[in-house]
Amino acid sequence: MSFFKSLFAKKQPLPTRTLTVPNELQTHDIFTFGDSFALPQIMRKQQFQVIDCHTIEFKYDHYAQIIAQGSAEELVYVSFPDNPQKLIKVSLLLTRDEVQNLFDLETFAEIFEEPGNVNLMPLTNDHHYADMVADNYIQQNFMITGYKHRKDYRGQKPPQHNEEEHGREFEYYSLEGAHGKRMVEIYIFENGDTDVYLSFLRPANDIAELWIKGE
């Protein structure tokens, strides 16, 4: 009897992944920013799909950075560094022209000179970045070594001293404004490639909707 019961018993559906907070986003998932006017137009009420997930590693910590794309070509980067307020970091990768339009390049070049204590002010308030830009930035980090991994290492430690899997080494420079909520972040990689991000910390509920791809 027990054999026939098990044979004809209704199969229970397999558990599916849940997605309730932004730091659970994975590749191909979809999310929408809310309608806060603190967000630039490229983000406000716009839908994005996660196209990749990287890991930013420093000596004592590491965190995920998701790369997402909406209807425009410009990518949006959302990171989850550890902080008491559990804020997310939202970033845009700036072109050289955008850096030049926002900041004086001679002053910007001093970021890379010792002792690394630059005071940087935007050249204009006429930009499309909404509240991403601070009125003034003070340099915080100078030539900090880190690694960028093209894999998601949430919940595990990135590989150490593994020539096949180690990330791209970089030097990290950063400036902060608006009580640490606005940042200019610079990554200089071993081959000379340089990424300049305009970043700001925002409440996680700025991401208003989340969907698992295919559901």
Rank of each mutant, 00 (worst) to 15 (best):
F33L: 04
A208P: 04
M143C: 13
E169V: 14
S2W: 09
A72E: 11
P13H: 03
Q156P: 10
V133Y: 04
F200E: 08
I207D: 05
Y173V: 15
D29K: 04
L123F: 05
K157N: 08
N125G: 12
N141Q: 10
I56E: 13
S79T: 14
T55R: 01
P122Q: 02
Y187Q: 13
E165G: 03
Y172W: 05
L92Y: 07
H179Q: 15
A68H: 06
M1W: 03
M132N: 04
V118R: 01
V76E: 09
N162V: 00
H62D: 08
L210C: 01
K157G: 04
I88G: 03
M121G: 02
V90N: 04
E190V: 11
Y129T: 13
L19Y: 08
A204F: 02
P158D: 05
R202H: 13
E113W: 15
D97A: 09
Y153E: 03
S71A: 14
P159G: 05
L7G: 08
A178I: 09
M132L: 10
A9H: 12
L94M: 03
Q49S: 08
P84W: 08
V118E: 04
F103M: 10
N101V: 11
D193V: 10
H127A: 09
M121I: 11
Q160P: 00
M43R: 06
T124F: 01
D193T: 14
K11G: 07
L105T: 15
G192E: 07
P158V: 00
L105F: 11
E163F: 03
F33Q: 06
H166L: 09
L14I: 14
G116Y: 03
Q100R: 12
I42N: 05
I66Y: 06
R168P: 00
M1D: 15
K157Q: 11
A204G: 07
G214S: 01
G116V: 04
K213G: 10
T32Y: 08
A64P: 07
L14Q: 13
R17S: 11
Y197V: 05
E164F: 05
T194L: 08
Q100N: 13
T124Q: 02
I56P: 14
V21L: 08
I144S: 03
R17Q: 13
F200S: 15
K10A: 15
P158I: 01
I188R: 05
M1L: 10
R182T: 15
Q46H: 07
P122G: 00
A72W: 00
G116M: 03
K11W: 05
P84M: 10
H62Q: 11
K86Q: 14
V21Q: 10
A9Q: 13
L7S: 10
G146E: 01
E190R: 01
P122W: 02
A64F: 00
Q100F: 07
H28I: 13
D152Y: 09
Y60A: 14
V99H: 00
N136T: 15
N117E: 14
T27V: 15
P22E: 06
R17I: 12
Q140N: 09
Y137D: 06
S199F: 03
L201P: 02
I51M: 03
F170M: 06
F103V: 11
Q69W: 06
G180K: 00
Q12A: 02
F48T: 02
H161C: 07
K11D: 11
L19A: 15
P81W: 07
G177T: 03
M1A: 12
A130G: 06
